[in-house]
Design a protein around this nucleic acid. Structure first.
Lengths: 238, 238
DNA sequence: TACTCAAACGAGACTGAGTGTCATTATTTG
DNA sequence: CAAATAATGACACTCAGTCTCGTTTGAGTA
């Protein structure tokens, strides 16, 4: 590939850099995986997730059903590759670093690092994926489960690194706050078609994280007026 | 049908009061539902969820597959009836009351009211259900999704009642904190076979809610020493 | 280059969940 | 008691996901 012509020449998924370093087998594996994910995203978007059978998909991608299930555990999984990549990077970013200071900030930064490290094409795929998910109950269920799985990993990581008790609810709460902050930030970003660049997404993410502490103090009387994280709680924390 | 020989005395699952007020059709519907849930919980516990086919289940419960799917949307659903009942009661308890004061407290109280209102047999079924869930990946995924659905309803309810913006992350955060508090409280309770009564469960629940605000301040240095969090106040508790 | 071993692949049979149709039966209502 | 209505059971069908097995293909070695 000539470094100058960065854009994909419209071939179904085969137009990726394919890290030359890896053994040939691995490269093929990855290419098959990418082709499947790309084909799936296109077909599901065009025809709908339910209306597209697995058989149609594997025929279009020119692999067998067996191969599909060696690459993905379920039909749903191939549709949410972009999600999967993000959260895998998040968990990896968290695990590879030592913890110091406020944990919620650590989570925010791990998520930030994960987001900036994703390949340039990720933006487009993520937006399309989110759209698809919102229109497809089966995918909604699948991402719910996937998200919970990520949170479990984060909890395990935190519990381990901090030497906490298994019944401690704090890592659980923090893990959920982090994913929720992402959800809220990403929702608006996706709504704007991701026209705004990834920096905007990350800025929104940080904004969401800052708004989290104020959530606890939401009460019925002063409800709508205070959407920003301005006021500090009366007697909340030690 | 001889009117004299009333309802099956010791038939599997028919031994419930059957609110006399309801129209006959509704009573039958409910009885079928209960029978299915009870039979399912027993068979799944004995043979395993995956190893029990739907056909075996409906044969044992003496209904057709059609009837099953009119009562439950999926095989998974019949296994988690106890969960479903709890969360339905929770949402109902929240919706039927006006909000005043700190929302997190409102959620805690709605959950408390829901828990105390459940039928006496619920304890046993819930414990068995949780055990089954933990041993069954498919059910784990299903409850994850179910829980998220409940949170969505809570968010919608709060957003509506408080007149909040759709992008406000606060109701989302609060909804998740509530379900998390329950999860943590219930986990230990279930581990002890629910030998302790429901009051204990509720006391644990309140303890978990109280520990939530401190979660935000968890940091790497003062990590393990200060678990004012999950461990409930030793012996003395109001 | 040839040869071997292991891993990935394709083909196809098979299981079981979930859906749709329709005739039959049970409950409600007038 | 009769007509309208709703639930039921039987059955055929689709399709995701699993399993088996024979074939291909890349990796390591002589």
């Amino acid at each position: 590939m000539i470094p100058g012509m960065a854009v994909t020449p419209t071939a179904p998924g085969a137009a990726t850099p394919d890290d030359r370093a890896l053994p040939l087998r691995e490269r093929k594996r990855l290419r098959t995986r990418r082709t499947l994910a790309e084909t799936a995203l296109r077909m599901f978007t065009e025809k709908g997730f339910d209306a597209t059978t697995l058989e149609e998909l594997v025929e279009e991608a020119e692999v067998s059903k067996s191969t599909f299930f060696r690459a993905f555990p379920a039909k749903e999984a191939v549709a949410i590759e972009a999600e999967t990549q993000l959260w895998a990077a998040y968990v990896a970013a968290l695990e590879e670093r030592e913890l110091s200071g406020v944990v919620l900030v650590e989570l925010r930064d791990a998520l930030t690092r994960a987001a900036v490290a994703l390949d340039p094409d990720w933006d487009r795929r993520y937006v399309a994926t989110r759209r698809l998910i919102l229109a497809t109950p089966a995918l909604l269920a699948y991402v719910d489960h996937h998200r919970t799985g990520v949170e479990r990993q984060v909890v395990a990581c935190l519990t381990g690194k901090l030497g906490l008790d298994d019944d401690d609810l704090r890592p659980q709460v923090l893990a959920e706050l982090a994913t929720t902050a992402w959800s809220v930030a990403a929702r608006r970003w996706v709504r704007e078609e991701g026209r705004a660049g990834r920096e905007v997404l990350i800025r929104r993410l940080h904004g969401a994280f800052e708004a989290v502490p104020a959530s606890l103090d939401l009460s019925a009387s002063q409800a709508s007026p205070a959407p920003s994280a301005s006021l500090e709680p009366p007697a909340s924390r030690a």
